[in-house]
């Protein structure tokens, strides 16, 4: 398999959020700013990467019938690790992301990578796949966060570039849906070309 292609597929062609419509809950729930989106993306990337590595290593040890419970336990462990480490060392971000950190465990995209890719491929491919897909997810969340922050609070990564309030609706729930809708339309257009 072409590893370069394997790595870049997560950005646009098979982007988990824009194309596959997976992991939408954190994608909408945590992207009130570019920074929050990036934090959530990186946390998820860590879980995808680590669970891909472990699943790929033990794929032959685990019998077929119990593979899903095993994968879930592995993913849940890494999620808990992220949760604990963030609470200890990045308390402000941890509070912002809140409920969505434990919910990484039910992010269909994470289990999807373990089941569809890591359980069938070599360690190296799984590492590259996990990193690429994780970065693609981070990219999507940061982009969505940035779009909402620019429109909603006239700022990017906390830096205000126009005085005063932006279009508040983009920070609120409805704006999340609408912003993502237009970004998906954009990604579709890019994919067609």
């Amino acid at each position: 398999m072409d590893q370069a292609k394997n790595f870049t597929k997560g950005f646009i062609r098979e982007n988990p959020v824009f194309i596959l419509m997976l992991g939408l809950c954190p994608a909408l729930g945590t992207t009130t700013s570019a920074f929050n989106g990036m934090g959530m993306g990186l946390a998820t990337m860590f879980v995808v990467l680590m669970s891909n590595i472990v699943v790929s290593l033990i794929k032959n040890f685990v019998p077929n019938k119990v593979r899903i419970p095993c994968y879930i336990v592995i993913i849940a462990s890494f999620v808990t690790i992220v949760d604990l480490v963030m609470a200890g060392f990045m308390p402000a971000l941890h509070e912002q992301l809140g409920l969505f950190i434990p919910l990484i465990v039910v992010n269909c995209f994470v289990l999807g990578r373990a089941e569809a890719f890591a359980s069938k491929n070599t360690l190296l491919s799984s590492v590259i796949d996990g990193t690429g897909m994780g970065l693609g997810f981070t990219f999507a969340l940061t982009l969505l966060g940035a779009a909402r922050e620019i429109l909603g609070s006239n700022a990017i990564f906390g830096l205000q570039f126009i005085e005063g309030d932006g279009m508040l609706v983009f920070i609120l729930a409805p704006g999340a849906f609408i912003a993502l809708g237009y970004l998906i339309a954009l990604a579709n257009k890019l994919n067609k070309q």
Partner: peptide
């Protein structure tokens, strides 16, 4: 398999 995975986890 289940026992090992849960124990290690």
């Amino acid at each position: 398999a289940l026992l090992t995975v849960t124990l290690v986890a």
